[in-house]
Design a protein around this nucleic acid. Structure first.
Lengths: 222, 222
DNA sequence: CTTGTAAATTGAACACGTTCAAAAACAAGG
DNA sequence: CCTTGTTTTTGAACGTGTTCAATTTACAAG
């Protein structure tokens, strides 16, 4: 029962619409670029865009899926360059921010969509689970067999925490209007160093109870 | 040069529109309640709503201003009940969450507005500065002359950090669909305890360099 | 080549947030 | 009571995202 015959031509149309959308989003911003603009730029009728994408927001999501596919390819190379924990996390962050750099403004639209828990495209929702898990797993790969010793009981939850940390950084970056977003750069430099230090610190014998307390909070919450 | 004569009747109309809006927002949600609904409920024409409020989102902001006014009155009573740091912060949080409880869904709309750095109503923007400062100052009042000893160099920045912490909690609460939002409750219980412990811990002699490093990051960022 | 069916495409229509010129209500002075 | 200027109110109109019945196109089967 083949439900989709999807010709090559159809795939081309889809790509043309998405490309037109991204171009216009970047030129004029998400709100300013209208679906009629996008369709015209792609050389199709307005309704055609809705044949390929559920909504205007879905176009942004399609962009995100694209970057995720790209990241999947680049990831092994990026992670393989060092076994130092800090350098590895840094490499992941650089990859992500590098991908988003040209579309910083578009990220506002992405977050505005995701911030609604009821929205299917929310980063905490069901539909985005695979991508989220993949992203979290990339941090898991980064910490395993790294040179920094990580307490056993922390190993399970740390990837998720780092993912959350990354989300926070992206949020900050969105708001950062300093030239070339150098404030975000400084924040990453400073905070990442701090975090790695805290992880090392938390491995000290006396820190067991405090660590346990933190992990208890985490497990009670999810 | 009195530019606004604003009669009593006009003020009543404004209040009626805002009340209708909040009622409908709560009944049907922000997106589902249309401006035409709101106007009809208030017994005015559609355009009237735009005479008193710049936009639909502005109605949400007006609600927020209302709660802030209310909080200003309740604050002294709430803070005066104890000198214990944890209890005080807890009291502030309880006040905030108590106010928002009935309108949890509406908060999504509020955050969706605020997440856009370019939007005038963004919580980090110019227009919301007074309210933000007031909120930060409430934390400043809570830590001064509390029983917990707070390192001198930390005293300036801690209020802002706590404000950020509060924002994070509100975000979590927004996504929390557990019965009566008990997961948020647990998170507050656990994290607040942790934070107060960390503050105490950071006051230990050996922690000076780490504290300084953190403060350096903060100052480099803003 | 013809035909039947699914995929692809169209463009008018809908509901929405928002704007605005015009009308109405109101206040103050004569 | 008029007149004049300001505040308030109206409702039609605009541009938007989105839907959908209708049409055209693509292609496999006969």
């Amino acid at each position: 029962m083949t439900k989709k015959r999807t010709t090559v031509k159809a795939e081309e149309t889809r790509a043309r619409i998405l490309d037109s959308a991204l171009q216009l989003f970047r030129e004029k911003g998400f709100d300013e670029a209208t679906m009629r603009d996008i369709a015209e730029e792609a050389g199709v009728a307005t309704g055609a865009a809705y044949y390929y994408f559920r909504s205007k927001e879905d176009l942004v999501m399609a962009f995100y899926v694209r970057t995720a596919d790209e990241a999947r390819e680049l990831f092994p190379k990026v992670i393989g360059e060092s076994r130092d924990l800090q350098k590895r996390i840094r490499a992941i962050l650089d990859l992500k921010f590098g991908q988003f750099a040209r579309h910083r403004r578009l990220l506002v639209a992405l977050v505005r969509i995701g911030i609604d828990p009821a929205h299917p495209l929310s980063p905490f929702g069901k539909e985005t689970e695979p991508m989220r898990d993949e992203s979290i797993d990339s941090f898991r790969l980064a910490i395993t067999d790294s040179t920094t010793r990580i307490p056993k009981d922390l190993q399970d939850d740390l990837p998720r925490l780092l993912w959350l940390y990354q989300m926070g950084l992206i949020l900050f970056w969105m708001f950062d209007e300093s030239p070339r977003q150098q404030r975000t750069k400084k924040l990453i430099d400073g905070s990442l160093d701090l975090i790695v230090r805290l992880i090392s610190l938390s491995a000290l014998p006396l820190m067991g109870p405090l660590r346990k307390r933190m992990l208890d909070v985490l497990s009670a919450v999810e």
